[in-house]
Structures are given as structure tokens and as C-alpha cells.
Nucleic acid binder design. Structure first.
Lengths: 251, 251
DNA sequence: CACTGCGGTGAACACCGTTAACAGTTAACG
DNA sequence: CGTTAACTGTTAACGGTGTTCACCGCAGTG
């Protein structure tokens, strides 16, 4: 938790970065790169301290100069992966200047699936592991949590932009019920002031997208479908219609 | 892989179960019960060979007389958990003789969620871990796989019964597209001869249910909802409507 | 009876995360 | 400048893991 308090203070006070600091940052990056490589090659259990250390010709205890524990390393890795995924989706979203908001929504949805299928181990680490706690104890925000929020914000922001551009039909009150209505209303600010029925649809979009990708990556769909790609596309069209988007027809 | 070949052959040949065999089966059950207990108390990492052995006053190597490896024990545990979950859902489904098929579908959906929330560690073990392979290599069906099929069959069977009783409106061809249409048609036999558009809806039912429960159990919904119960109920009503069921209104 | 094999043991191997004690380099300060 | 402190690395060691081996006692059987 307090691995290098003094260094952080100094770094916060003076923006100056000495040679030591630069080399240290480089080593940290090298460690995370090695951990990432091991994760890709052998999954999470392959990311051991000794394995990472061996990857850059160090001894295992040396890593404790950079990370407080094995768990800290994994957490840092998770945060990095979130950021990488977020950057990838943003780059994908802005890749086609002619794409409207709806098309952008489709693009990042497909992009998330592509990334998940291309990096199953990383995806499982980010989304398959149980998130420890929301904000119950001292609401200590892990770097991973913050990165996860930045990631989710990409979707939330885009959905709200879609709604503000052309409000889609909200889910009816009879469907939600009073309790859910109240909960959604409470979170309205987070969704750019959308009404509860619209927040519900935005949440549905995310829930279904997450579920689909999870099932496919975790191989939970093999029994029913040989190639889940077409199914994913159809589901995406269905969700898009609910958001008032004109979806491209099935090819 | 071939832990006790001779014993299996003998057991297959003669149904007679000697006292030894009975005691052996009892010990196996005891081991799995201890493993289960440790899983509940401390999650998967708490299920160690030495810990299990300690639970019943044995040495760790003794367990190798009953399970070929730690992984085998976990696999057996997974299979048992699938069977337990399946039994629970069946019992729940048949608990109310007055319930029609649609109500039964709601009951097992809610039952699955309840079980998942009550046993998050077990749920993560069953559905959060990546299923190794569908049937690519020698399609060696693990006991866990078979148990998983029995579990899934409960849902498939009930959905098909619902459809045969009162066919719900199939998803339109334009939504599916030719490729998905062909894939679904191929799997029609598995779904009791339902048309592709109906199989698609049945699959959607399962996909959304899985995604919802996964997200909630893995804590991936905390940022948006304080209590996911109401959201789950609304989603269930929405899915039920797609299956032509008259859903109870939100309370 | 002798014999076979099952169920158990403790010792040992290789690995893991982690800590402690120690040494060399490097930056900072009087 | 020299002294000192911090930083970065080492090796040794502790307790933990899954796993294998050699051994041993006892039940069941020919």
C-alpha cells in the first residue's frame, strides 16, 4: 500500500524527473510488459513473480522494489489493460469521421468483442474476475477501478450522446416498476440527465453486450452455435433498434 | 486420466459392490464435501489438497488414492455442483403444481439467480471459468461437461415445451440473416424442431439471463445499480414477453 | 496360510509469494 | 570534496503449494 511514499511526495512536489526516476519508470514498464507477455502466453497462473523476474534477468525479490506484492502487480496490469482497451475503442470510434453516433456505437461494440476474442486471457482478467467491492469500506479506489470507470465512460458517453441527438423511445413505466424507476432516476446525472426509461435501455445495451461477449469468450456458447459472429451481429441489430438506430441489414 | 482402470472394469462387469467399494465411495463423497465446504468458506484458492486432507484427518498424498490430481478433484467438484444446481432447479420447477410452463420458466430463472447470489464462489467456478474446448480434439467429454449439458437441458427442454404449447412469434428473417438462419436450422433437432427464429429467441433468453447473473455476481453492476433485483425482474419480464408469456406486473 | 492390493504414512522435490539481511551504486547534502 | 542516505539488486530462508516416491499395515482372496 505504502511502497514508496517518500518518492511519491517528491515526485508530486517537483515535476522534475531525474535519471533515476526515468530508469525506474522504464523498469516498471518493462516488468508490466513481461507480465503481459506471460499472461498472453500462459494465462493468469503463468504470471508469477519468479517468472516475470526471469523474463528480464532479475531475481524475484527485486520486483518488490517496484510493486508491493504480486497482487499489486496484477492490479497494475489490469489498469494498464483497461487503458489499452479504452484507447483502442476510442481510436476505433474516431477512425471514421463520416460515421454518425449510432455507427460509432456499433463500432465500439464490435471492437470490444474483437478485442475480447483476440485477448481472451486479458478479457477474463478484466471482466471475469469478481470485482471485490463497490465502495463499501473506505471506498479506496484502486487504479484498476478508476481505469474501469474510464472504460465504461466511453460507452455511457456515447449512448447519452445518441439519446441527446435523437431521443429513443424510453422503456415503459409498467415494465420497470416503481423501485427500479427510483433507482434509475437517482443515477440520472451519471447518464447525462436521461429519463429512467432511457437509462434502462442504455443499461440493457451494456448488459446484453457484456453477456454476449462473456459467453463467447468463456466458450459457453459452443454447444449452440458454431460461429457466434452472426448471432452477435443479430443481437447488436436488435439492441440498436431499441435505441432507435437504423441498423444495417444482415449481409 | 486413467486413475483406476481395473476397478472400473470390475465395477462395470459385476454390479456387486463389496464393502470396500462402498467405503471407498463414502470416502470420495467425504472428500468432495470437505472440498465443497472449503470452497464456500474461502473461494477456490482455499481448496488445497492439504486443506482438504486436513479437513478429514488425512495426509495430502492419501487423496491421490481417490483423485488423480488436484485438477481432477476440482473437476469432480464442478460436476457435483452442476448436478446440485440442476436438482435444485428441477425441484423448484416442480414445487408448484399449479404453475404453468411460463411461470416455471420464470421460477427457474429466478432460482438460478438466487443460487448464484447465494453461492458466488461456486457460480464463478461453473460459469466464470473458460470452458477448455468444445469438441475439437478427441471430444473427450469431461464429467463436468456432461453435467453442464444436463443443466442446460433443463432450460432448453422448458423453452421448447413453452413453444410447443403456444408458439411464440419467431424473430424475423431480416434480423437473423442467412448465415445465422442456417446455423440455427442446423441445431433445430436439439431444440425440439423449433424454427430458427424461435431457436434464436430461446438462445436470447439464455444469453441475457446468463449475462445478467454474471454481471451481478461478478459485481460488474455496482456502478449503475444499488440493488440489481428490480433490474433483473424487469429484464425477465422483457424476455418473457418476447416468448409470448403474460408476465406479472412490477410490484 | 501366503499373497496381493488397497489405503495410509512421512520424506522429499520443485515451485510459489514473501521477508530479512546484506552489498554495490548513485544521488544529495553539509 | 567527503559523508550519508536512498535506491537497486543480491542470496538465504520461511511457509505454503501440488506431486512423487518408498514404505508399511491391514483387509480380502486363492
Amino acid at each position: 500500500m505504502e511502497g514508496e511514499s517518500r518518492r511519491d511526495q517528491q515526485q508530486a512536489a517537483t515535476v522534475a524527473e531525474s535519471r533515476r526516476d526515468r530508469q525506474r519508470a522504464a523498469t516498471v514498464a518493462e516488468i508490466k510488459a513481461a507480465a503481459r507477455k506471460l499472461l498472453v502466453e500462459g494465462g493468469l497462473p503463468a504470471v508469477g513473480l519468479r517468472a516475470v523476474a526471469r523474463e528480464l534477468g532479475l531475481s524475484a525479490p527485486a520486483l518488490y522494489r517496484y510493486f508491493g506484492s504480486h497482487e499489486d502487480l496484477i492490479s497494475a496490469l489490469i489498469a494498464d489493460l483497461y487503458d489499452e482497451l479504452t484507447a483502442y475503442l476510442i481510436q476505433l470510434r474516431d477512425s471514421d469521421p463520416a460515421a454518425d453516433l449510432g455507427e460509432q456505437l456499433f463500432m465500439i461494440a464490435g471492437g470490444l468483442r474483437d478485442w475480447a476474442l483476440a485477448h481472451p486471457a486479458e478479457f477474463g482478467l478484466l471482466f471475469g474476475a469478481p470485482v471485490p467491492d463497490p465502495l463499501d469500506p473506505g471506498h479506496e479506489l484502486t487504479a484498476g477501478h478508476q481505469a474501469a470507470m474510464r472504460f465504461g465512460a466511453v460507452f455511457v458517453e456515447l449512448v447519452t450522446k445518441v439519446w441527446h441527438q435523437q431521443p429513443f423511445e424510453s422503456a415503459p413505466v409498467e415494465l420497470l416498476g416503481p423501485e427500479l424507476q427510483a433507482q434509475l432516476e437517482q443515477k440520472a446525472a451519471f447518464f447525462g440527465g436521461m429519463p429512467p426509461g432511457a437509462v434502462y435501455l442504455a443499461l440493457t445495451y451494456w448488459t446484453r453486450l457484456y453477456g454476449l461477449i462473456c459467453m463467447e469468450v468463456f466458450g459457453q456458447l459452443h454447444w449452440a452455435l458454431d460461429d457466434a459472429g452472426a448471432y452477435f451481429a443479430a443481437q447488436l441489430r436488435e439492441i440498436g433498434e431499441a435505441l432507435g438506430l437504423d441498423c444495417p441489414p444482415a449481409d
